[in-house]
């Protein structure tokens, strides 16, 4: 970037300092600016301060939370499961049995241990993209198969709100078939749709959502999601 506006009689602009620290100056301008530093005591400080600002910005985003793909989340369930199974096995060794998440904890184990004995997964659908939904169902099937194969307990609930409730209706035969197939195969898999969304769609868009028979109606999808998370369910965004 060519800049010929600065000279020994004119203070160096912030634009020029920015261009300098961003490596946007030509070699000639860069050398010219460097020669100014010798004549201007404050210039080095201004450059330093601007560079520090840039580095601070870069540093702030150097380590950010990873995106949570369903595959990664699904994988992340397995270490939890391993821990849960280990705790459960320990319980058995100690002569403690009959631990189920919906039963009162009479085992003597801390509540957290009994809760971890059964993995509970909530899959949250918010988008009406059928391709993405089919992909999610495919991942779910793999998850359920894996748990079943390992004789491990898992409970999966798919909650849809927003546009995603349409996926649980009869509008998409491909998805309806998959849901019927999976529901028939796994009794530890359930589907729920948000009534608030359905009512809202009826009022605002005139849409009548005809839910699949495997889908239960819940008052609020979001409340369900929050409640499940509070109860220790693993959250996966579908």
């Amino acid at each position: 970037m060519k800049d010929s506006h600065h000279n020994s009689h004119k203070p160096v602009s912030d634009e020029l300092i920015n261009a300098f620290i961003d490596h946007q100056l030509t070699n000639e301008d860069r050398l010219d600016l460097l020669s100014h530093i010798k004549q201007d005591d404050t210039l080095a400080g201004r450059i330093c301060e601007m560079k520090q600002l840039k580095e601070l910005t870069q540093h702030a985003f150097a380590d950010i939370p990873s995106p949570h793909h369903i595959d990664e989340k699904t994988r992340s369930v397995f270490p939890r499961l391993a821990a849960a199974i280990a705790i459960f096995s320990l319980g058995l060794l100690l002569g403690i049995a009959g631990i189920y998440s919906n039963q009162q904890n009479t085992t003597g184990l801390p509540a957290s241990a009994s809760e971890q004995a059964q993995t509970r997964v909530l899959v949250h659908l918010t988008s009406a993209d059928p391709e993405s939904a089919l992909n999610t169902l495919q991942n779910l099937q793999q998850l359920l198969e894996q748990y079943s194969h390992n004789q491990q307990q898992v409970m999966v609930e798919v909650v849809a709100n927003g546009d995603a409730v349409q996926l649980l209706s009869r509008t998409s035969p491909a998805i309806a078939d998959r849901i019927a197939e999976l529901s028939g195969q796994y009794d530890n898999l359930s589907f729920a749709a948000c009534k608030n969304t359905i009512d809202q769609m009826k009022i605002t868009r005139g849409l009548k959502i005809d839910l699949l028979p495997q889908v239960k109606l819940i008052d609020s999808g979001v409340v369900q999601v929050i409640q499940r998370q509070r109860d220790g369910w693993t959250y996966i965004r579908g």
């Binding site: 920015n18 261009a19 961003d22 910005t57």
Partner: peptide, 19 residues
């Protein structure tokens, strides 16, 4: 490009104040 430079300049000045 001129607008990029001026926005960058004002943006960094603002960021400096916020920090």
């Amino acid at each position: 490009v001129g607008t990029v430079m001026s926005r960058l300049c004002r943006g960094r000045a603002q960021l400096k104040l916020l920090l």
